[in-house]
Write a protein that binds this DNA or RNA. Structure first.
Length: 285
DNA sequence: AACGAGTCCTGATCGC
DNA sequence: TGCGATCAGGACTCGT
């Protein structure tokens, strides 16, 4: 399970599940007994079950949000290895299913998450935007498409490397390692460049590349390098269009130079030394 | 306030 | 072949 679900994968799941979840209601919740990232009091589950049918399925950053009539919502984050699946009730339990929501049509929503970095959290709908984890999230990059001046303003006061900055969900929400790496490659920007040294032209290229790569990935149903699936079990196809992520040691599609991998802010990244103007020599420190 | 480091977790991969 | 060590990384907390 290498690919981590990011904004396009969560949006793909949202689109696959929304038509099948709207109008349904939760009858019961089942846990594997092993904790996910956040512990939930039993009383919160009772409140959610006391609510009525699901009336809206939305996404904020990498969070999926199910609003039920009656004022309660369900917040789902897939963490690093989470998969969300809608299956017929009673079908054999896949390994690592740590949460199940039993629906009134006999189906089940299942969270399969080996590493248990994911979370499923009931929350009062009215305070989602001010008090839940959603309150911390930054700009939604596609709603509407983020612009260069907005990114520049969001980065003011920071000197972090642009790659590291892009992964900060309190600035721009939903961008993870795959799409940050791809956007910087397409914008031809050195991932180590401090944000306060990006030119206006850099920001324009980055805003355009980020929007383009995220929109394309949604259109392709996400990236499936190992086993990503939407809520109905379908893989994505954006892996065919990756130009940098996962291609370290292979030739750049633009210029033919060998792509290099190195670390920024504790995370691996891949870049083209020529297109992204990275000097020869040791990298990453 | 910004930011780096530490934490959580297990499947895949590496080194001997 | 087998086994222990290492790596991977999103979001959160904590210390500087």
């Amino acid at each position: 399970m290498t690919e981590v679900p990011e904004l396009p994968e969560v949006e793909t799941i949202r689109r696959s599940l929304a038509p099948k979840l709207i109008g349904r209601r939760f009858l019961a919740i089942r846990s594997s007994g092993l904790p996910l990232r956040r512990r939930v009091a039993g009383s919160s589950w009772k409140r959610l079950l006391g609510a009525r049918e699901i009336q809206r399925v939305s996404r904020r950053g990498k969070y999926l949000v199910l609003d039920c009539r009656g004022g309660w919502s369900l917040l789902v984050h897939l963490g690093m290895s989470g998969r969300l699946l809608l299956v017929e009730g009673g079908s054999g339990l896949e390994p690592h299913v740590h949460w199940r929501g039993l629906l009134d049509d006999g189906r089940e929503l299942r969270l399969r998450d080996p590493r248990r970095f994911g979370s499923v959290l009931p929350w009062p709908t009215a305070s989602l935007q001010v008090a839940s984890p959603l309150a911390r999230l930054g700009r939604e990059p596609l709603d509407p498409p983020v612009t260069a001046p907005e990114l520049e303003a969001l980065a003011r006061g920071s000197r972090r490397a642009i790659k590291d900055w892009l992964l900060d969900s309190t600035r721009v929400a939903g961008v993870g390692n795959i799409y940050a790496t791809e956007a910087l490659f397409r914008a031809r920007i050195d991932p180590r460049k401090p944000v306060d040294r990006l030119s206006h032209a850099n920001w324009r290229q980055l805003a355009a590349a980020l929007v383009e790569v995220l929109e394309s990935a949604i259109e392709a149903g996400g990236t499936t390098l190992q086993d990503f699936q939407d809520g109905c079990g379908r893989p994505g196809t954006f892996q065919r269009f990756l130009q940098a992520y996962g291609r370290a040691g292979q030739p750049c599609y633009r210029c033919g130079r060998i792509l290099r991998s190195f670390r920024i802010g504790g995370r691996s990244t891949v870049a083209c030394p020529r297109c992204q103007r990275i000097p020869d020599g040791p990298l990453g420190l």
